[in-house]
């Protein structure tokens, strides 16, 4: 275990109306065994004691599954490592004396609420538009009634691993939510249970995505590269196929 002295450049913004600015902080004796969020805890404790306002940042489970945390760290969504969330980034990956720049996710669809916190409720509205299988509780057939090939199941699960953190939108130069939308479309369409609504779903979710102000996909693949769950570009290709299929098949309502 070693101790680091660091220079932080943190985006501070009082609320959605405030313009925001970077504020510099120096912080000493940070253990390499800390997570970056624990480093921020230490900074906040120090700020509170000095009578200054602590840095607001989103976090909850701190084990990489809830999808709350998300900071743009030194120019990368969730920091310099691949396939982890912000809370899983440990300080041993930084050097003594290094400057760490912390910015909130940037996208029109994710307005900044305060400091490093953004509003990702657009994702909820996209799911509400069609990211489900329309079954009511009760009356479901036996779980083994419809066999599902293991291969399909595994692929569906690969897509279903999305934690909705928004790193895909943050990393995308177009602020496109395509990976998020595609992951859900892909998860459901690969299962027999999701097939009856496949045409309706793809249109509904894409429409909502556009309404929320997200950009469109230009295949830079940054989303997939920064996705903490490693969701593949395959899902976007699958969404495209679903879209074409639905365009041809869907009857006018």
């Amino acid at each position: 275990m070693a101790l680091l002295n660091l220079h932080l450049k943190v985006w501070r913004q009082k609320n959605n109306e405030d313009e925001g600015r970077f504020v510099d902080y120096n912080i000493q004796d940070i253990s390499t065994e800390m997570s970056i969020l624990e480093m921020l805890d230490v900074l906040n404790e120090k700020l509170i004691k000095e009578g200054q306002e602590p840095v607001a940042f989103e976090h909850d489970c701190r084990e990489g599954i809830c999808g709350c945390c998300g900071i743009f760290i030194n120019g990368r969504a969730h920091g310099p490592l691949k396939r982890i969330t912000t809370c899983q980034l440990y300080m041993r990956h930084f050097k003594d004396g290094e400057t760490i720049v912390l910015e909130p996710w940037r996208a029109k669809g994710f307005p900044v609420l305060k400091d490093l916190m953004v509003d990702r409720s657009a994702f909820d509205r996209i799911i509400a538009a069609g990211g489900f299988v329309a079954v009511n509780t009760g009356g479901a057939p036996d779980a083994n009634a419809v066999p599902i090939p293991k291969h399909n199941l595994e692929k569906a699960l690969d897509a279903a691993e999305c934690i909705g953190c928004g790193a895909c939108v943050a990393a995308c130069k177009n602020a496109s939510a395509m990976l998020f939308v595609s992951a859900k479309v892909s998860h459901l369409v690969r299962l027999p249970q999701g097939k009856p609504e496949r045409e309706k779903r793809v249109f509904a979710m894409l429409n909502q995505m556009e309404k929320e102000g997200f950009g469109s996909c230009t295949n830079t693949e940054a989303c997939s590269a920064e996705c903490p769950k490693g969701i593949s570009m395959d899902v976007i290709a699958q969404l495209r196929r679903e879209y074409f299929r639905a365009s041809v098949r869907q009857e006018k309502e």
């Binding site: 479901a140 779980a143 293991k150 199941l153 998860h187 299962l191 249970q193």
Partner: peptide, 22 residues
């Protein structure tokens, strides 16, 4: 038992065997 049926109907991808059963 109903829980498992319900979740599968919703599209919860529980692990399966090669034959397609849970």
């Amino acid at each position: 038992s109903n829980i498992i049926d319900q979740c599968v109907a919703q599209g919860v991808p529980f692990a399966r065997e090669y034959g397609g059963l849970l």
